[in-house]
Amino acid sequence: MDSKARRYLFEKAKEFVYEAGQRIKEQIDQPRTIETKSNPNDLVTEMDQNTEKFFAESIRNEFPEHRLFGEEGFGDDIQDLKGIVWIVDPIDGTMNFVHQKRNFAISVGVYEDGVGEIGVIYDVMGGALYSAIRGEGAYKNDLPLRMPEKKRIEETILALNTSWLIPENPHINHAGVAELVKTIRSTRSYGSAALEFVYVAEGIIDGYLTMTLMPWDIAAGKIIVNEAGGLVTTADGRELDMLNKTTVLASHIDIHKEIVENYVQLKTK
């Protein structure tokens, strides 16, 4: 993809995101149809489904040769990332959307042959658009994002789910997480992976550690964090699998290796 094609694709991605966001805002106070998926806390609404359907139709009308990798069933059967693939989460933070009517985002990553080219995350109710084009930096609205040059582990604010501190959790040794929490300055949990990624890029938090994300949760945020100077890998420091569920550590580069080597011990299944 040449720079002109990439720029056009970026502008269309923003156009789709803004329109989808406007549709959500216009209907935010309407009664919701709420269903559960994998567990009682894994919620989906008709707004998630309608928003993904909007992206599917918009992408296919404008770019019929592109494919869509989505959460709600309106995309293609994706077994690889050959060609150009849009990886879309129509509402990231559905529980926040249902309970708070805020703190959720639209997340769109565009990949070419497995390489992240464009990332767009829209904080719908906050009105902030976070974006990145590979090699051109990351932005919040029109302001460039760049993570602080230096960061010590003792000064770190880390986003993580408190369930990883429970001994019975199936993913990670809770003792290592407990030691990490004692070492850093503080923790946060925002309930939206997309927002947690962009908060890392913005420097609001210094890292985000989680055990169970899908590609649509990651695709845009990974590009934006990388372009802001951060590092995104699995929780144990490996390259991400962009086709399947995975662990994630997105953080300032100074603390990344220390967290992986000193505090993360994943459980074997």
Score class of each variant (00 low, 15 high):
Ile121Arg: 00
Gly137Glu: 06
Thr210Val: 12
Trp164His: 15
Glu71Ile: 10
Val98Cys: 05
Asp142Cys: 13
Glu117Trp: 11
Pro148Leu: 13
Met214Asp: 07
Asn262Glu: 12
Ser131Trp: 05
Phe10Lys: 10
Ala250Gln: 06
Ala219His: 04
Ala250Ser: 13
Leu9Gly: 01
Gly176Lys: 00
Glu261Asn: 13
Asp123Tyr: 02
Val120Asn: 04
Ala13Ile: 11
Leu266His: 07
Met95Val: 12
Pro40Thr: 03
Glu149Gln: 15
Val120Gly: 00
Ile84Pro: 04
Gly83Trp: 12
Pro167Tyr: 10
Trp86Ala: 02
Thr45Leu: 06
Asp206Met: 05
Ser251Trp: 02
Gly70Cys: 12
Pro167Arg: 10
Ile106Arg: 01
Ile153Lys: 09
Thr234Asp: 14
Met147Gly: 02
Val124Ile: 14
Phe104Glu: 00
Asn103Tyr: 10
Gly127Thr: 06
Val260Met: 03
Val44Leu: 08
Asn141Pro: 07
Leu195His: 04
Gln265Asp: 13
Asp142Asn: 14
Asp217His: 12
Thr94Val: 09
Glu155Ala: 08
Leu9Arg: 02
Arg146Asp: 05
Ile184His: 00
Tyr263Cys: 08
Gln27Ile: 09
Glu62Lys: 12
Asp254Asn: 04
Arg188Pro: 11
Ala5Cys: 14
Tyr18Trp: 14
Val232Gly: 02
Pro144Lys: 14
Tyr208Ser: 01
Asp29Gln: 14
Gln27Asn: 15
Arg238Lys: 15
Gly109Phe: 02
Gly75His: 04
Thr268Gly: 13
Glu196Lys: 05
Ala250Asp: 08
Thr162Val: 14
Tyr130Asn: 05
Ser163Cys: 15
Leu213Ser: 11
Val248Thr: 04
Lys267Gln: 13
Ile184Gly: 01
Asp2Arg: 12
Lys53Arg: 13
Glu71His: 08
Ile253Ser: 14
Ala138Phe: 05
Glu46Ala: 09
Leu129Thr: 03
Val85Pro: 00
Asn244Trp: 13
Met95Ser: 13
Ser192Phe: 07
Val177Ala: 12
Ile106Met: 06
Ile91Pro: 00
Gly221Pro: 12
Gly114Ser: 14
Lys4Glu: 11
Glu149Tyr: 11
Gln27Ser: 15
Val44Trp: 03
Ala5Val: 15
Ala235Thr: 06
Ser131Asn: 11
Glu239Asp: 15
Tyr8Cys: 08
Ile172Met: 03
Gly75Trp: 03
Leu143Tyr: 13
Ile28His: 02
Glu196Thr: 08
Asn96Cys: 09
Thr233Trp: 05
Ala13Thr: 15
Phe10Pro: 04
Gly207Cys: 01
Gln22Asn: 15
